[in-house]
Write a protein that binds this DNA or RNA. Sequence first.
RNA 1: GGUCCCAUAGCUCAGCUGGAUAGAGCAACAGAUUUCUAAUCUGUCGGUCUCAGGUUCGAAUCCUGAUGGGAUCACCA
Length: 588
Amino acid sequence: MNFITEAVAKAVKSLYQIDLNPADVNLQETRKEFEGQVTLVTFPFTKASRKSPEQTGQEIGAFLQNQVDEIAAFNVIKGFLNISLSDTYWLGKFYNEVLADDFGFIKPNGQKVMVEYSSPNTNKPLHLGHVRNNLLGYSVAKILEAAGFEVVKTNLVNDRGIHICKSMLAWQKFGNGETPESSGMKGDHLVGKYYVLFDKEYKKQIEELVASGQSEEEAKKNAPLMKGAQEMLQKWEAGDAEVIGLWKTMNSWVYAGFAETYKRLGVEFDKYYYESNTYLLGKDIVEEGLEKGVFFQKEDGSVWVDLTADGLDQKLVRRSDGTSVYMTQDLGTAQLKYDDFHMNESIYVVGNEQDYHFKVLFLILEKLGKSWAKGLYHLSYGMVDLPSGKMKSREGTVVDADDLIDEMEQTAKEQTEALGKTEGLSEVDKAELYHTIGMGALKYFLLKVDPKKRLLFDPNESVDFQGHTGPFIQYTHARIRSVLSRVASSDNTGSTVSKLFPEERDLILLLNQFPDIIEQAAKGHNPAAIANYAYEVAKAFNKFYHERSILQAEDEQTKQFRLQLSAASVNVIKKGMGLLGIEVPERM
RNA sequence: GGUCCCAUAGCUCAGCUGGAUAGAGCAACAGAUUUCUAAUCUGUCGGUCUCAGGUUCGAAUCCUGAUGGGAUCACCA
């Protein structure tokens, strides 16, 4: 569209003698109830033209039509100049750009970006909240890749700490040597079971202590289970062989379970970081901060940073006993990641309850003079809530990721069977199809909304398969594939159509936007932009499909053109859905 | 209490750097298939864009304030 903005600048200069930066020309899509594809708002020029918006529009329109070949017609309504570009122009766009194999994806820009996501605790299985995180992280990584970045996907596993000791202790006390093999349970679920059990038994002990006269607070501290867990953590830090052995065993169970869930979710990582390796990092940075005067020490030896001048609080960065806190660790890990990859940008996909933490983290790094600090970004997303309120692993009020995937597959199966679309499919094909559709529905449901908004999920209300959904888009894909499969390869080299029907033009216009949408989604770290776009494309195709026959087109040229238009549509849909981590079936 | 985020149709959500009569899906109702997959398409119904000011030729969009909801402000992670 650059040629239009330039032409407008020229028109305005020639007509009204004002110099206009082409970047200031504001073009927008023409609303569909009017004739044309591109609209110029003429109000900003009326001061210079000293004429009414309508007259100004007429004058600019006439000038443009005269000067620019591609402009076929124009009309002015109120202050809006609607420009119609010729079908030749749109067909040129279609053949030269949209139909190219690498259409949509932007050339490498030489920038490297890290996306850290998932970051689970190893004391319990993944739940719906993690699912949103994983899908967001994976999709953002894909989108950035498409936008030309080199992407490193990382997972910082929280594999140590008191919460893991709780699971370990409960297993030791009540587990009777139970293993994933002996119980038939998935490893992460088995460990999670003991985490819940710990909490249950712990509460019992508190009650007993309270009954025997202790205050609630005392009881929480004195309960034998809590003491045991703390003792275990100390032993772990001291390198106690038995504790470390148990820790390794139970973690390996969890990892096996996670690997399975990640595979079903379709996410992956290039690099894992483990907190057991990074939790001691950051002490150098504390020293550095003290030297630079960014941090200060209190009488008891604890080290702090004062951010009150920035509207924040004082924040502890090292305990009085010399040990690290969360912030210390994250400072160190940030440095480690940068040293490993020297990336230009680093994105942390973490829930919005940690907004404050990241604000502080980034600010500290900036104050320390880290040149790379400005490339840090917290992709903060809203919580997933249930109608009953917040999910709590300890209390078992969570929507488990594996259960959810099972349910989605089951629903996909029921829907597909009800529609009688399973004919001729092997059992393996069917299972794969149900997985594809079920996950398509779930992923689309979670990704189509703006990440920063909180999400309400009602387990009693099934995720839709009709309308603005993943399966709708998947279905469109399958239908196009079905049409295309009916013809042999279509490599027409001869002439093509010269006129477009509205449905065809609309579709070309929409397809043409794909690269812009990718760029916009990358800039805003927002998969929802892709999701909504893919829906628009599917809808536009369905309309075209309904109005115009492809295989029974009026003539051979039209048929070839429509086949190519279908191929371009299927391509964009497949790529777009791929950016969301959603697969598309050949039939459904 | 301080700080941050959110508020658009009965429900779930779009609405890009301010532009025309605020758009989809679901739900409800009415239609479309001798023709490429009806998980589709077409239509009807549905709105004080939370409220009040301000900036502007023009505000759902920007600014200020209020209300409602959420998060956060630990020598937990």
